[in-house]
Every structure is written in structure tokens, then in C-alpha cells.
């Protein structure tokens, strides 16, 4: 029975956050967000999630810290190199036929993915005709993304990922190392627009040719996934591309018929032409 009380408390807390701060986590996948809120409860020294609700309703600074539990920030440059290799080898030739390109990195977290795309597009000669939209709801993550500073200890992994993705240059060309940190070249940012955008509550803002949204939908329940994929579908031009995380699929989505599988193992989809 204890678990059922916690379910009630989690739903009330998410409702409270929505009413007070307009962040809407009510459609997030329950099993995972409940685990993270129990961790937050313990972190804030609360006996119950209801007590955490009391704290967050009356102190906005708690919300900022709680956002680190409500959203999950895990990323790497060129994470799943096979994904970027498939984009390089099979999607880029299509993109090269467009005079101008818009690419949406949805749920960009701390920016690793958008820098991966900026580097890949530079290597493939597409950067100058592209605008990247990097969006997230977590302001703290967006600030980190815009700064483009990562631990030097992560560069070995990032370099190996980049190489496996078919990288045509050396990753060290794109950052300067100092004091244990790698700062990515600000020239990579000149085509990137960082923006606060919610897949839960906001609308489409641009017509795009490629949307990459990886390991974001796993935190949504099915209804919310359908909403987000609907936004991508509306944003993409005919025969535009959608890339998902390695274990995400459109198979269980109401939009499954709106897309064709383009590279099955790499979870790349192509929007079907609309009548």
C-alpha cells in the first residue's frame, strides 16, 4: 500500500509544479520519474514526497535543483557512433541537395549532441548552409550547452566515438584544453541557436530537414511521445529525417505510418510525403 501512497504523492507533486511553475512533467513515464523523485526526497531530507511538494511550492530555488532530478542529463559527443556514421553516409547525400538546411536537436541537454552535428556538418561541407536549433527545458543544461566546456577526462571517449563515426578530421582541432577542461571552439556555435523549448507544452517553430531527438522520448509516456513525435512530423519537410535513440522506436507510436524506416538499426526514419 505504501507504494500506492507514493504514486498519489508523485502525481500531486507534478500537478503542483505544473500549477505553480508551468513545467509539465505529468506525462512522464511513471516508473523512472518516481525513482528519481524518491532520490530527490532523500536528498532534500524530506520524509515524504508530500513534504518535498511543500518545499518546492514555497521556494523557487528548490525547483531549480529539482530540475536536475526531473530531467536526466547523460550524453557524449558522437554517442552511438554508428548513428552518426549512418547520417554521414546515408542522410548527408540527401541533405546536400538542399540550398539551405534547418536541423533541430530536441532535448539537447548539455550540448554534446549539437556539437557533434556541428563538427560533422563542417566536415561534410554543410555547416555554412545550416541553422541548428538546440532546445531543452532545463535552463542550467542550456547554459552548459552554450558554454561548450567538458571535462578533459571525457575527451578520450569523445575522440574514439568521433573516429568511429567516420570523422574526417581530428577532434582536437575543435577544442582547446586548459585546467582539466576542454572548451569547444566558439566558431562551432555561430550556426547554433540555443533555445528554451518544451516538447510537452510548446509548438513547432520552424520547418526542418532533420530532427535528432535521442534518449528524450524514453522519459515520456505513450501519449506524450505521440505529442512530441507529432511536433517532429509537423516540423519536418516532406522526406525529412528523424533520428531517435538506439532503443527508441516509432513502432508503438500513433505516427508509425507517417514515417518510413530509413536505417533500421540506427533508428533513422524518413517522413513520408503528405498528400
Amino acid at each position: 500500500m505504501h507504494n500506492k501512497i507514493e504514486d498519489i504523492e508523485v502525481r500531486l507533486l507534478l500537478e503542483a509544479i505544473h500549477l505553480k511553475y508551468h513545467y509539465d512533467f505529468r506525462g512522464y513515464a511513471m516508473a523512472s520519474i518516481k525513482r528519481r523523485l524518491i532520490q530527490a526526497r532523500d536528498r532534500f531530507g524530506c520524509r515524504t514526497i508530500s513534504m518535498l511538494q511543500d518545499l518546492v511550492l514555497h521556494d523557487e530555488s528548490i525547483l531549480m535543483e529539482l530540475m536536475g532530478y526531473l530531467t536526466v542529463q547523460v550524453s557524449e559527443l558522437f554517442r552511438d557512433p554508428a548513428y552518426f556514421k549512418a547520417i554521414r553516409e546515408t542522410v548527408v547525400p540527401h541533405l546536400k541537395t538542399y540550398p539551405s538546411l534547418k536541423v533541430w536537436i530536441a532535448g539537447c541537454s548539455t550540448g554534446e549532441e549539437v556539437y557533434s552535428f556541428a563538427i560533422l556538418f563542417r566536415e561534410e561541407g554543410l555547416e555554412d548552409r545550416t541553422i541548428f536549433y538546440a532546445t531543452d527545458i532545463n535552463q542550467d543544461s542550456l547554459r552548459k550547452a552554450e558554454a561548450g566546456v567538458y571535462g578533459l577526462d571525457r575527451m578520450r571517449l569523445f575522440t574514439e566515438n568521433h573516429r568511429l563515426s567516420g570523422g574526417k578530421s581530428s577532434l582536437s582541432d575543435y577544442y582547446t584544453a586548459a585546467y582539466g577542461a576542454a572548451t569547444f571552439d566558439k566558431s562551432l556555435r555561430k550556426r547554433i541557436v540555443f533555445s528554451d523549448h518544451s516538447l510537452v507544452t510548446d509548438a513547432v517553430f520552424a520547418e526542418t530537414q532533420l530532427v535528432s531527438c535521442r534518449n528524450v522520448l524514453i522519459y515520456f509516456n505513450k501519449d506524450l511521445q505521440n505529442r512530441a513525435i507529432g511536433l517532429f512530423r509537423d516540423s519536418l519537410s516532406n522526406r525529412g529525417f528523424l533520428g531517435l535513440g538506439a532503443k527508441e522506436t516509432l513502432r508503438f507510436s500513433s505516427h508509425v505510418d507517417g514515417f518510413a524506416e530509413f536505417a533500421r538499426d540506427e533508428r533513422l526514419y524518413q517522413k513520408r510525403e503528405e498528400a
Partner: peptide
């Protein structure tokens, strides 16, 4: 469970993954 993801069960008996 896929490598590098947690595997979770939802109340409606569907699966969820997480990178937490």
C-alpha cells in the same frame, strides 16, 4: 535489458528505458 540502459516496468505492463 539493453547495455547502458536501465530497464523498468510500467503499471500498464509495458517497458521503459532510462539513462539515469
Amino acid at each position: 535489458a539493453p547495455p547502458d540502459y536501465h530497464l523498468l516496468v510500467e503499471q500498464d505492463h509495458s517497458l521503459s528505458l532510462s539513462n539515469e
